[in-house]
Design a protein around this nucleic acid. Structure first.
Lengths: 179, 179
DNA sequence: CGGGTACTTGACCGATTGGTCAAGTCCCCG
DNA sequence: CGGGGACTTGACCAATCGGTCAAGTACCCG
């Protein structure tokens, strides 16, 4: 799965053949179809693995935070850091979002993360720390900002320096704060 | 090109064969290769068309605005509206960004739009309307928010109502305003 | 009307695709 | 030691891929 994920991320899912994967691994084709029903199922399994890992990281980052705003900031930072480290997973997520065959596999995981973030946004609103607006929408907006920053880094168009990450976080917090 | 763009957007670029395109159009394969060198060149031409159209819309929206902040807001709204209308182009942009063969074709157009937005952000800073920070990064952040909102609409996960668009704009303006 | 250019056709090409399967090999358990 | 499930192999399959090209057809100009 790790090797296939690498190839998918570098070459693209469709242009990477099953033959290429098993050849690179030095195994027969039968091995592949013993463990996976199809090439599609392989990618789905990889995506599920990645989402689980990201979710773990987010939960760990949020644990121990005191107020809702701190939870939001930590969640943002954890997501950015994970995405920067896990280039392969991130690229596969990006691809999967563009393909109807896989978009549904992303949806559930994304919704869980967004709803979680939205909960903290709603908490901050209840505490009067930020003005009332649709928490789910704001959570998505923050997700959009962070995703785009990471994408820039991976595409080599801009380095995600600590300062850039700070600016990104500030943008998100400013975005939910302003009336 | 329009038919091919539709097919690419619905089915994906790779899964859509040249044979399927010419068959759907009711023409011979030779016609295709008379006008295009390859399937890749076709997508590149489609992407170029889309970028040109988007750029025109952005320029038209900004023209006539008075201050830098108004220019920014109009640019955001124009980008969102165009992306919502031009579902096909937007999906192809999203795909192209995930494929190294086509990512470069997007880069130039994206940079032009971002630099333009960054200029207005810098103007607003010079006028003291918003605090000083990297204008290019902020422009990218706004692009990330709007892109994500449109993506949600196209994937059917959230309707981009006028209110949602307003919230999105407010998020962006808040993001660049807060210290 | 004759000839040439612009365009169109679809059979055809070698390569490659995702997937199958008969024939093993390996190793654990009785 | 013998048998049986777990696992592996790679030749093989029909289908399809992007792309080519000889053989037209349509139409304009002299």
């Amino acid at each position: 799965m790790a090797y296939a994920a690498d190839r998918f991320a570098d070459n693209g899912y469709h242009p990477t053949s099953v033959a290429e994967i098993v050849e690179g691994l030095g195994v027969g084709k039968g091995v592949f179809y013993w463990y996976f029903d199809s090439k599609e199922e392989l990618l789905r399994a990889i995506l599920a693995d990645g989402q689980l890992d990201l979710r773990r990281r987010q939960r760990a980052a949020i644990a121990g935070a005191e107020g809702p705003m701190e939870r939001i900031e930590r969640g943002i930072r954890a997501s950015i850091e994970w995405s920067l480290e896990q280039r392969v997973f991130f690229r596969l997520f990006q691809f999967a979002a563009t393909d109807d065959r896989f978009a549904d596999n992303l949806r559930k995981g994304e919704q869980v993360a967004v709803r979680d973030a939205a909960k903290h946004v709603a908490d901050a609103m209840a505490a009067g720390e930020i003005p009332d607006r649709d928490p789910v929408l704001l959570a998505h907006a923050m997700l959009g900002v962070t995703t785009h920053l990471v994408q820039l880094d991976h595409r080599g168009l801009m380095k995600a320096t600590p300062e850039a990450i700070d600016s990104c976080v500030a943008f998100c917090l400013g975005g939910i704060s302003r009336v």
